Computed example of a mutant assay.
Amino acid sequence: MLSTVGAALAPGIAILSYFYLKDKYETEPLHMVVKSFIMGILLVFPVMVVQFGFQEELHLGVFAQAYFSAGFLEEFFKWFIIYYTVYKHVEFDEPYDGIVYSVAVSLGFATLENFFYLLSHGVSTAFYRALLPVSSHGLFGVLMGYYLGKAKFSPASKQRWFLVLSLFIPVLLHGTYDFILMVGGTVWPWLMIPFMLFLWMVAIKRSRAALNRSIAAAFGQHYEQEEAEKI
């Protein structure tokens, strides 16, 4: 059991640490990040119930399972929690913060899913799970957080558009990920490898852009404070 818990936790903690430690200028309070991670874990239960209900009542096809049951429902629940618990919080005070908290919630969700899977299929599948399901959830979280950060610090006229993108893009990517697994047959690895490489490249690029905006905002604020003190 301990080996299963460790194998389930390790990839999520590693990916979260990577994105958390990138924010070297104004690191988020650790207790807030841990709280977001735990909320992601707890989200698994209501999502499973809702997914089961839709599948039983509507008998969803492959496309609907991928883009609605997996993509929309899972990403919407994450987005909803982040928006109402973190987005309006005083600690969300720079663009990169959206990425930190979204990744924390997403990886909390992925970690419990990973634990259930390893419990059923064995620790031998842990490497595959770390490379694909866990990391993909984290990367969906990067993109969700990137656009939440854009919304938070953009003019009011653009905020709604970025909020829409913060949900739409993760849903689209998550649905595509599941669709590849469902219909890829024996060639699914050859479809998944370029998809995951693309996802990593986009996520890294967006995280750097958010971090650069946060650094620029921090230095601008410090400069203004110094000038005000001189006056």
Rank of each mutant, 00 (worst) to 15 (best):
P133W: 02
S136P: 00
H137T: 01
H137P: 00
G138L: 02
G138D: 02
F140L: 02
F140Q: 01
V142E: 04
L143S: 02
G145V: 03
Y146N: 00
Y146D: 04
Y147S: 00
Y147R: 02
Y147C: 03
L148S: 04
K152H: 02
K152W: 04
K152G: 03
P155R: 14
A156D: 13
S157E: 15
Q159N: 11
Q159R: 14
R160I: 15
R160F: 15
R160C: 13
W161F: 15
V164D: 12
L165Y: 14
S166L: 08
S166E: 07
L167C: 04
I169E: 05
V171C: 05
L172E: 11
L172P: 06
L173T: 03
L173F: 09
H174Y: 08
H174S: 06
T176Q: 10
Y177H: 15
F179M: 09
L181D: 09
L181S: 06
M182G: 08
V183R: 07
V183G: 02
G184C: 03
G184P: 04
T186F: 12
V187Q: 12
W188M: 14
P189T: 01
P189D: 07
P189N: 06
L191W: 07
L191F: 07
M192G: 04
I193W: 10
I193D: 06
P194W: 03
P194L: 02
P194C: 05
F195D: 02
F195M: 04
F195H: 03
L197G: 13
F198G: 09
W200I: 15
M201T: 12
V202N: 10
V202I: 15
V202M: 13
A203K: 09
A203Q: 09
A203F: 08
A203D: 08
K205F: 15
K205H: 15
K205N: 15
S207R: 09
R208W: 12
A209G: 10
L211V: 09
